[in-house]
Computed example of a mutant assay.
Amino acid sequence: MSNKVKVVICGKDFTLQTAESSNYVFGLARTLESRITEITDANSSASPFTAAIMVGLATLDDLNKANAKLDSIRDQSKEYVDEAGKTRLERDAAMQQVEALKSRIAELERELREKDSK
């Protein structure tokens, strides 16, 4: 489903075609305008356009860093899953050995009882 959402950023109207809710888009527009205003207030020579470019670059930097962290987390998760699978196999093998040893103990105890009864 697609919505047309009209937002005002730095006094300019923008109509956006989006699948997102209008409240979400309004929130984005408010955040963008707030960041632009922070830059223009801090630097009187910065135009809204220049501030928008700076916000865009900072946002892309944040996105790239977040994606790198996400990739790292995915890699780490895969390592954990692989390690868990390996550990599960080792546990299963150990359980088989325990069962084999229990059977051997029971067999030896039977043999011992047989010898003692003779």
Rank of each mutant, 00 (worst) to 15 (best):
residue 76 Q to W: 05
residue 40 T to H: 13
residue 40 T to C: 15
residue 77 S to I: 07
residue 95 M to V: 10
residue 23 N to I: 03
residue 24 Y to E: 15
residue 81 V to P: 01
residue 102 K to Y: 00
residue 74 R to L: 04
residue 50 T to H: 09
residue 17 Q to I: 14
residue 30 R to C: 02
residue 88 R to Y: 08
residue 96 Q to K: 06
residue 64 N to Y: 15
residue 24 Y to K: 14
residue 103 S to L: 08
residue 45 S to A: 14
residue 48 P to A: 13
residue 85 G to N: 12
residue 65 K to L: 10
residue 65 K to M: 11
residue 36 I to G: 01
residue 54 M to T: 07
residue 68 A to Q: 06
residue 52 A to P: 02
residue 19 A to I: 05
residue 64 N to R: 15
residue 63 L to P: 00
residue 18 T to D: 03
residue 92 D to V: 04
residue 32 L to G: 02
residue 26 F to M: 14
residue 80 Y to E: 13
residue 52 A to R: 00
residue 92 D to R: 06
residue 49 F to Y: 12
residue 61 D to A: 12
residue 15 T to M: 12
residue 68 A to E: 10
residue 15 T to L: 12
residue 27 G to R: 01
residue 96 Q to C: 03
residue 44 S to A: 09
residue 95 M to F: 06
residue 27 G to V: 02
residue 51 A to T: 01
residue 45 S to N: 14
residue 61 D to P: 03
residue 89 L to R: 12
residue 33 E to N: 04
residue 66 A to R: 02
residue 61 D to L: 09
residue 102 K to P: 00
residue 39 I to G: 04
residue 54 M to N: 09
residue 81 V to S: 02
residue 17 Q to T: 15
residue 66 A to N: 07
residue 57 L to G: 08
residue 47 S to T: 14
residue 82 D to T: 10
residue 69 K to Q: 08
residue 85 G to S: 09
residue 54 M to D: 04
residue 103 S to R: 09
residue 63 L to Y: 06
residue 80 Y to V: 13
